[in-house]
Write a protein that binds this DNA or RNA. Sequence first.
DNA 1: CAATTCTCCGCAACCGATTGTGCAATCAGT
DNA 2: ACTGATTGCACAATCGGTTGCGGAGAATTG
Lengths: 341, 341
Amino acid sequence: MAEKHQLTLKDIARELGLAVSTVSRALKSHPDISDETIKLVKDYAKEHHYVPNLLAVNFRKSKTFNIGLVIPELVHQFFSTIISGVLQEANDKGYNVLICQSNEKLSDEKKVAQALLNSRVDGVIISLSNETEDYSHLKEFLDAEIPVVQVDKIIEGFDTPKVVVNDYSGAYQAVDYLIGQGYQKVAHLRGRLIVQHSNERHRGYAEAMEQHKLPIKEDYIRICDLQTEKEGYTYAREMMNLPEPPDAIFCVTDLVALGVMEYLREKNIKVPEEVGVIGFSNWQLGEIIRPTLSTVHQPGFELGVKATELLLDKINNGSSSPNIKVVLDADLIIRDSVRKL
Amino acid sequence: MAEKHQLTLKDIARELGLAVSTVSRALKSHPDISDETIKLVKDYAKEHHYVPNLLAVNFRKSKTFNIGLVIPELVHQFFSTIISGVLQEANDKGYNVLICQSNEKLSDEKKVAQALLNSRVDGVIISLSNETEDYSHLKEFLDAEIPVVQVDKIIEGFDTPKVVVNDYSGAYQAVDYLIGQGYQKVAHLRGRLIVQHSNERHRGYAEAMEQHKLPIKEDYIRICDLQTEKEGYTYAREMMNLPEPPDAIFCVTDLVALGVMEYLREKNIKVPEEVGVIGFSNWQLGEIIRPTLSTVHQPGFELGVKATELLLDKINNGSSSPNIKVVLDADLIIRDSVRKL
DNA sequence: CAATTCTCCGCAACCGATTGTGCAATCAGT
DNA sequence: ACTGATTGCACAATCGGTTGCGGAGAATTG
């Protein structure tokens, strides 16, 4: 079984009494080669299971058919969903994916970027770490004419194609829905001020409130630095102890929402009757807890697919393809944590 | 910035008036080359940022420095943790990882296996799909002298290094602990009969019971085909309605345990006072639900690291390294779903 | 029948690094 | 000073495809 020596063009040429170049062209159905010869070669190749040596082909063409994917964390629902999308589209088009984690650290991001550069990937898809504020380490890719596509966590000023989720509209939908269900005093546990996602979600919240002519009270807004369950719990307590507590809480993240629900259950405050809760991200846990958690679904898979499409387009069509920004919509998922009229 | 033409050995040789071979050897500090020349070349290389063309090197050496990783699902806590371990160890040793999903389908597994073969990876780590019962499609790797390491979901008969978790001891510890805390009537919601994990966990359960001279009643054992929350819920109801209901339930999976807890809460049966519950896998959700879920932790990360170590050893030392089987211990994690004495 | 055009295929360079072999110059030994 | 060993480097083949160019022979044309 074990072929000592992988079959090469040379072998076929010798066996068939042809030149190596003829065999090469025949396998590609080159017009210069007669149909008979093409058939002869192809049949022989098939019969003897010829597979071109990818290393040689890649070397010659200066292509690896590998694309790099840099993400903050691998063990993470959202990101692994993105990866899944990238994988599908890339494999479908004959590309392999080299995955690297930045662990949300700039230093690691730089390190893997170098590694990818050395690996001579044909292109890179990157979701920036939280620490990343400039893109000097990524410019090297463009200098080396390796296309880059940014996904989800991006830097606007870095001129590459981008794929992001519409946080604003997701948040707007959520709050708009809450109000539509009769909630009036909607609070928002938001994320950090310097994170774009957080700001966009806050903007969605604010504009929905405004649209319905509801006041935005300072007391109803808290910043979750870490976006943990604990923060949700703590801020829920603070808010519910206000003279005029909110009757709905829109959270920047499902985990925060979980903390909120935790507190409410402890205090025997009924969800959704007394207080409505909506999270963001559509984590698995939302379907598992009781009451099930309403949330905003971010299309991670589609994000990955789209980013890959853009990248492959760049790779194959070069500078002729413009650096567009694709914004995918987030979907509101209604479950039991909000009243149904 | 953009170097039109990447610097090559030839360029350096021309510039320095040396032969290409001398430059090549100098960069590797070959003993045949004088220290002066070595310094000269290395300095020049450093100054002009010479990086060897990986494609050429790989082609020459017939190595890709890529390893393939085939797993059933990417969006999955346990598997993504394994990936994380593989990634860390591989990157650390200068290897890239090509990740492929089998989606738990044999057909997909065959497809990606072919793709990896064509990509000429240096080795493969695989966790088999649920549908995989023979390994004919994997033998091709060995025929092509590409080392394979099996991880977690394995076929014993397929002669490769293997890395698995000790399901038996994990289960034994769990049940032993339950009994130690005073539970006597321990039930087990197990997985399918043809799945090795399930059988091992069941064996751990059975032996722990036996060890403590407790009877194993048929009524206390149910098979969860899908290992869903719903099954947990259903079987918990069945069991709690027995004339003599169990006072503890050991579940094949956290998700099943969740369904059990769900039912118990509905019926107002106190956990852990009246019934103790332990799951398996240590999913995130276990820390999130109330009471928090005791479980058995499978060291996914270490699994990935170890598998990669074995693979790289195979790759670099060939057949001189034997096909050992590494069994990693699972740790019992005690949380609030069992009584604490 | 000679001139021209087509068909079909072989020759050889090439991509960039690696490596076996050979040769000139230096050095030690008697 | 002559032989033999050692040092330091260059030459050239090689890995397996790809591709520009050129040429022999058949077919077409005037």
